[in-house]
Amino acid sequence: MSDYKLKIVHLFPDFLNLYGDKGNIEAMKKRLEWRDVEAEVCLCTEGNEEIDFENTDIFVLGGGSDREQETVRQKLMEKKDAFKDYAEKGGVILATCGGFELLGNTIRKGEEETECLGILDIETDIAEDGKRFTGNVIIENSELGKIVGFENHSGRMNIKDNTPLGKVITGKGNDGKSGAEGVIYKNVFGTYLHGPLLPKNPDLCDYILNRALKRKYEDFMGLMPLGDHLEDKARRYIIKRFLG
């Protein structure tokens, strides 16, 4: 029987599930289980919306269509203070694409400004020409090396003084000009790299899991390395294709 256990809550996958976010949940779950750490995955869905911030170790918030994203925003705004408190106390959150934008202060579209959760001190402007940044992305994180993924967004994110998840090598990133992609703030990870980001980036996955485990268990020594043969091949394929 395992001594360690994490509870992962997938926030509103019934609304925000546009880009195969399931992959991130599966990667976390499997990579914990392969190390004999118990993983409990809970779905927070329409009609089943109670969130237990005290006993949650990782929140995952994905991307969705504009309409569905707005529904989720309204639902989460009711829990804004508790959510922010969770993050400030070092709670782990992985937010991708639209979910990343929702963690910021505001999303502005033309004249219209929508208030968001304010967990991250960042702001999003929706591109006036509607142009989407779409394509494969490679970023460089100083600790984790290269991270690969796919972006598809019309938001232009200003992360101000925040630390980015990585430096853009291929692709557009937060705003197409600053060279920054994503944000790491305390244990909150935000990124435009959507969908199955973690299966192909096992080091990032383990990094997030380690943060959650160390927060919960003071004596936790860190996850043992895995083979990751196939994972590395998938990641290296993209790197080779774009960087030679």
Partner: peptide, 9 residues
């Protein structure tokens, strides 16, 4: 489609 995220759906 150049995005293969849908494999997870």
């Amino acid at each position: 489609g150049i995005d293969v995220s849908w494999l997870w759906d």
